[in-house]
Computed example of a mutant assay.
Amino acid sequence: MDILHELYQTVEGRRQEKQEGSYTCYLFEKGLDKILKKCGEECSEVIIAAKNGKQEDTVGELADLLYHLTVLMVNEGIPFEAVEQELARRHQKQGNLKQFHQVDKNT
Rank of each mutant, 00 (worst) to 15 (best):
Q19N: 00
L32A: 07
E76D: 03
H68Q: 12
L27E: 10
Y26E: 15
D33I: 03
E12S: 11
G21N: 05
E41P: 05
G40M: 11
E17L: 04
E56P: 01
F28G: 01
L66N: 04
T70K: 07
I78W: 02
R14V: 06
H68N: 05
L7C: 12
L87K: 15
A50G: 07
K51H: 12
K30L: 12
G77C: 09
E76W: 00
L7T: 14
T70L: 05
H68G: 00
A88V: 07
N75F: 08
E6F: 04
R15T: 02
A82H: 12
L66Y: 02
G77P: 04
Y67T: 11
F28H: 03
E42V: 00
E17T: 13
G53Y: 12
E41I: 11
M73V: 04
E20S: 07
Y26V: 02
E81C: 01
V74E: 10
H5T: 12
T10P: 00
V11M: 06
L72A: 15
N75V: 01
D57L: 12
H5D: 12
Y8W: 11
L66P: 00
G53H: 10
Q19P: 00
L87G: 04
L36F: 05
V83A: 09
H68S: 12
E45H: 07
Q85L: 12
L69G: 08
Y8G: 01
K38Y: 05
Y8K: 04
G13W: 07
K54G: 00
